[in-house]
Design a protein around this nucleic acid. Sequence first.
DNA 1: ACATGTTCTTGACGTCGTGTCAAATACTTT
DNA 2: AAAGTATTTGACACGACGTCAAGAACATGT
Lengths: 198, 198
Amino acid sequence: MRPREFDHDDVLRIAFDQFWRKGVRGTSLSDIARDAGVQRGSLYNAFGSKEALFLQAYERYAGDYLLALQKALGTGSLRKRLTAFFDLTITNFRSGSPPRGCPTTRGLMELGAAEGEGLDEEARQAFAHLISRITALVQDTLSAGAKRGEFKGNPAAAALHIITVTRGLAVLERAYGDEAQLRKIASHTIDLVLEKGG
Amino acid sequence: MRPREFDHDDVLRIAFDQFWRKGVRGTSLSDIARDAGVQRGSLYNAFGSKEALFLQAYERYAGDYLLALQKALGTGSLRKRLTAFFDLTITNFRSGSPPRGCPTTRGLMELGAAEGEGLDEEARQAFAHLISRITALVQDTLSAGAKRGEFKGNPAAAALHIITVTRGLAVLERAYGDEAQLRKIASHTIDLVLEKGG
DNA sequence: ACATGTTCTTGACGTCGTGTCAAATACTTT
DNA sequence: AAAGTATTTGACACGACGTCAAGAACATGT
């Protein structure tokens, strides 16, 4: 076999960066190929199609992001954990310049759009999967908090509420770009959940 | 002057329908032209560009939608009003088959994506404007409720919280497509806001 | 009634993006 | 050293956006 002339993972990172900056439909394989110093045809050979490349790049990101969230949720009082969780969330989709928004939310609204099922359905599942995993993380954190008497509500309902708010924050970030407002909504949500039970 | 051979408003409606079904980037002007029985060139002549056409179609929709929301928020107890508000919100982005999602949220995540400012910035403002108007409507409703003793929290903060949840619902709808779950989150949010003050 | 002017329509064109294919290439294995 | 296999490369087909010049349809002034 002839060996690959590029690093699989490097290309995935470069591709994700482009997709995140310019959107999936707004990024051409020529862009990625130029940036990665690879021929366009090689990308098709290695990844299959643009959307397949995006999916693989996204899943790479999703794994990293989930680990970071897990870490953020892992120490301190329940309030501290939730605060760290929202912090990381907001920081994440405000990284880069201009802010790149939430990759998951953006991908979900952009790719889930087509009528024909095809690969889009696979993408939708990837996005939904990350959201589910995050929801589970938050729920576990709340359950643990409940055992320690820091929380008295229903962990499942509260986790779902929190996740809904984070998705909403991703949208508002795009609409207004006002980080202070996002943080206010986040701390407000924490108060609600901790005082009232979510 | 030679008269137009098509109805301006009809084309706007047809175009919005297509954009809503297949996304902005996923809809070609050829599609719209065929559907409307108009030549592609005529669309460029009348509307300027694809994004300009989308913007005009979106603003048409936004006006109608805002009126419907205003109506939904206009009668009954505060709880009834908020329930009607969430109902209309969820119904709206679950209309069509397959569910078309929230036009505003989808447009926001899809169009705000480009790096260059250009027309995208104009689009972002249109989306942000509708969200602001809706927030104001909810806030007014809460303020009125406060005067009648049905609500004791901060109307501005509560309205922002509610709007954040509706944007989050738009995203979760796309991820899971589970309407029952959306309704559960919505009624939960209403409880929180009314019992605790948002 | 007819010529003039203005706007809309129509079809051809240029450019760019996706995806496919066959030929050339570089390495591994026998 | 030869055969085999996977990768690279460049050409191609196709569709989408947007532009332009030429033709068509109406309003207006004489």
